[in-house]
């Protein structure tokens, strides 16, 4: 496999049983994503964006076909290996932030590092750096209920980035944010993509996100309907 290829799906099919019926969520999806991309899966609800994101994130397995992520075939991974892949190489950002409510901001960001068994000093350095990236170093001791939506999602970004993953999967990251916060978050992610070389893959139908993408993969009824690279001239200019 080409070294620059991070994700490769071949004839990927995902079918959900719905009583006597079958729901085809993904149908023959073939996709290649390279390192450093800032791409988005775009499409209406039910188009299969989140399903594809989940399979790439090794949270789910395909019914048929293959999904290769960082050289690992998702469909053959054991639960333990899948968890290890997520722990070491993949960061997740969710629509509803999914912060751990009883932990402070610092502890939330520190969490993935605890699973990596890093020393306390290594963890502290990495957490503070991650909080600096999202401009929340001064809120380290706050707890999630004390944060605004924008701040919460910035914490989620810091948590996803703190272990310097190869890939960040963001599922509708701006769905619960206002326009200003959405652009702020996306700007932050663009900076991290540019400065750290982290690959970002979004699932979205939010125009604000789409304006930031460098590659737009449109899904319709579980199939890739369009895959286009967006030039800088057509992208939203960073303020």
């Amino acid at each position: 496999m080409d070294d620059s290829v991070l994700i490769r799906t071949v004839d990927l099919v995902k079918i959900y049983p719905m009583g006597d019926q079958k729901l085809i969520a993904l149908n023959q999806v073939n996709l290649i994503l390279r390192k450093g991309e800032f791409a988005g899966l775009v499409g209406p609800s039910g188009s299969g964006k989140t399903t594809l994101l989940n399979i790439i994130g090794s949270l789910d397995v395909p019914t048929r076909g293959s999904a290769e992520v960082l050289g690992e075939k998702v469909e053959t991974l054991s639960h333990r290996k899948a968890a290890e892949l997520r722990n070491k190489h993949i960061g997740f950002i969710f629509q509803t932030f999914n912060l751990l409510p009883v932990y402070t901001v610092y502890e939330n960001v520190e969490f993935p590092l605890l699973l990596l068994d890093l020393s306390a000093s290594q963890r502290k350095k990495a957490v503070m750096a991650a909080l600096e990236w999202v401009h929340l170093a001064d809120r380290a001791k706050s707890k999630p209920p004390q944060l605004s939506g924008g701040e919460s999602q910035r914490v989620a970004v810091a948590r996803a980035m703190v272990k310097r993953p190869d890939l960040v999967l963001a599922d509708e990251p701006t769905a619960n944010l206002d326009a200003d916060n959405s652009h702020h978050i996306l700007d932050t992610m663009e900076v991290l993509n540019r400065d750290l070389g982290t690959t970002f893959l979004f699932s979205t139908h939010d125009q604000k996100v789409i304006e930031h993408l460098r590659r737009k993969i449109s899904l319709v009824d579980g199939r890739i309907a369009n895959d286009e690279t967006i030039g800088d001239e057509n992208r939203r200019k960073r303020p």
């Binding site: 997740f92 999914n98 699973l115």
Partner: peptide
């Protein structure tokens, strides 16, 4: 949902 998040962050079911 927290359990799902923990798994997404790389925690095994056993953990």
């Amino acid at each position: 949902k927290e359990i799902g998040t923990l798994m997404a962050l790389g925690m095994t079911r056993g953990k």
